[in-house]
Design a protein around this nucleic acid. Sequence first.
DNA 1: CAGTGGTCTAGACCACTGG
DNA 2: CAGTGGTCTAGACCACTGG
Lengths: 242, 242
Amino acid sequence: MRQTRYQSIAEDLRRSLAAGHPPGGLLPSESELSASHGASRVTVRRALELLRSEGLVDSRQGFGWFARTDPVRQSLGRLGTIEAQLADQGRRPERKVLDHRVVRTPPEVASILDSERVLRTRRLNLADGQPFALVTVWCPEALADGLTREAVEQSSFYDLLPLDVAGATQTIAAGLATDDEAKVLGVPAGSPVLRCERVTRAASDEAVLLSHHVFPAHLTEFVVDLPHVAPSMAPTGLRLVE
Amino acid sequence: MRQTRYQSIAEDLRRSLAAGHPPGGLLPSESELSASHGASRVTVRRALELLRSEGLVDSRQGFGWFARTDPVRQSLGRLGTIEAQLADQGRRPERKVLDHRVVRTPPEVASILDSERVLRTRRLNLADGQPFALVTVWCPEALADGLTREAVEQSSFYDLLPLDVAGATQTIAAGLATDDEAKVLGVPAGSPVLRCERVTRAASDEAVLLSHHVFPAHLTEFVVDLPHVAPSMAPTGLRLVE
DNA sequence: CAGTGGTCTAGACCACTGG
DNA sequence: CAGTGGTCTAGACCACTGG
């Protein structure tokens, strides 16, 4: 997709922010940005709104736009991928494939992925050699062409799929490690774990991946940012099951 | 805050969508909406973009805007509050206040709420008499004026606070129920639980509430929607702790 | 092809901040 | 007060969908 005017202005501003240009300080006014970028004020605003949605800047009417330094937002938008977090801590990420084969689609997977046969990969994620996640991924056979055992050990599924992934829905629950899970994760059997089920969609909204993730509770937590919240007796996103 | 043009158009459209007017079908074109609402196309678009961000509608270039019926999004945007879910199931929500008093701010709370003294409320949430959440809420004394024991048993904190809440950040982890928690929740001691810590912010971005929530694992799960995902070896929002 | 949404412009009025 | 962001208008051109 061709870059639009407001996207390239947003990129310019992102770079200038990353360079620490106004460290927690004011940005040029919309009129000035409009003049300096040779774009209308509306287009400049659109770029700024984009950066606001990314948590990079914020504004106050009658005052101006300023760079965000708020640690609260920092944790989520800036949280980034696990790889980025590990890199920040100087730790080494590693993937170990435990199983990798095409199988007939099990019924519980068939309700989500539209394919008779699926590639099923079981993989262990480690940080400095310590396992922190046991992952099972199901992928429709039609999309599994480049997904060799070596490829999925090196790269993420998202990078290997022959299409762009758009969004995902993940369910987060608590449970106890099974004997099998405990063994590969190196924790006592019956330890508490976080369980995540994720459905990944393509731009067409079709489900292209299903994955299950098991995390030792003492090593992991999820962080969710909610730009808007509604009055309720329980946190946003909670669902009662059964 | 006065209602803006695009907000009132969005409300009109929301009502018309709720009435099932175009059931999964096309909305009038932007030009038609512009004419029928007596607003410029830009303003109509702004209303539509708002609804899109709420997951109610979507668009395809050259085709039009249409109501979303996608079950995937259904689960999250449509998930709504716990109260709405319980009402859908014909179950009765109930709050029971276990403790309610002003205390000196504990250090771990002081790092988040800027107040010397805080109102601390311990509350049990039930569905048809069955407990599904044990909640502790801390609120700065300056904001606790209308928060009587009776009020917090009837209403949510968000409805009682003398200001508008903007967003929140929640952390989701797994653990085991303590003896005390197990007793009030009516589960065996050492059962797996979900633990949620939530920091609620006002429009000014100031933290106005801190809350801890404990949920029996067999009754509850969290659902998170991610409109965009990045390639990674672990799900979005996961953080390694310690 | 006519009609749609996606982007963009040059203007306008307003409420609000700070001095 | 002059300057700021928030909202809104009436136009324009384009890429795209469907028939």
